[in-house]
């Protein structure tokens, strides 16, 4: 009975308009599943067994993407409760902790996933180096990968200021003071541009917020698109 119902569903015009193939039961339909699916089409329909061996890649690239997805999801929800202004930003953290449903869980997820992502992306880079996967023709993809690592650190760093507590304030102050050491007055300029002033304050908060929630993620997504596309074109998964 139920089976027949499902069969009718899968053959209905509505279903067919969404998924143009039947259940992935034959090699053909399995190939079509990948081929016709927007999310899966970056993958080839067939892959080398060697390159999907877990101990070869450790799944680090995929995990990086996974963490990015988790961060985007939790981050979008956190944006609903967050005001990038002084001192409301801090009180919004308290509200997340005390009154928002699962607010503390969301914040924890976002925080720990962010730390994990910095580590995982770095490990991914090591893996690529030690398996020699940066060699021709994938030289440029390595370069993009390095920039993605920089993006990841930037994302984490810009997000670090947003809770507006002592930890974030002084973490960012220390970081931007390092930038000031750049010679020929460039350090001062970069730091001023970044903070919107000479010290960490409300301007810095709004700048870091925009960088964290829009500019850097968009840049990262674009780089990630190129990164994945090139992996595929160079014969990877």
């Amino acid at each position: 009975m139920i089976k027949r119902m499902f069969e009718r569903l899968f053959q209905s015009q509505v279903w067919r308009s969404m998924f143009r193939h039947g259940l992935p039961e034959s090699n053909r339909t399995r190939a079509e599943t990948v081929f016709y699916n927007f999310f899966l089409h970056v993958h080839p329909t067939k892959v080398r067994k060697r390159s999907i061996r877990f101990t070869y890649t450790w799944g680090l690239g995929g995990l990086s993407l996974g963490l990015f997805i988790v961060l985007t999801a939790t981050g979008a929800l956190l944006m609903l409760y967050y005001r990038p202004s002084v001192p409301q930003a801090y009180w919004d953290m308290k509200d997340l902790q005390f009154v928002v449903s699962s607010g503390q869980y969301l914040r924890n997820m976002h925080r720990w996933a962010a730390h994990a992502m910095v580590a995982v992306v770095f490990l991914h880079m090591l893996r690529v180096f030690y398996t020699g996967s940066y060699r021709s023709p994938k030289e440029f993809n390595w370069v993009i990968g390095v920039f993605l690592l920089v993006m990841t650190i930037l994302l984490s760093y810009t997000g670090y200021l947003l809770p507006w507590d002592q930890l974030s304030f002084w973490g960012i102050s220390v970081g931007t003071n390092m930038v000031r050491a750049v010679p020929f007055g460039m350090g001062e300029t970069i730091s001023f541009l970044l903070l919107g002033g000479n010290v960490v304050g409300e301007n810095a908060l709004i700048r870091f917020y925009v960088l964290h929630c829009f500019i850097v993620p968009v840049a990262a997504v674009i780089l990630m698109g190129i990164h994945f596309w090139r992996v595929r074109k160079d014969g990877g998964v």
Binding site: R30, T33, V34, K46, R48
Partner: peptide, 12 residues
Amino acid sequence: DEEMAMTFPSLV
């Protein structure tokens, strides 16, 4: 002669 696998379901 490398062995291949279907992306779906092996990889996905």
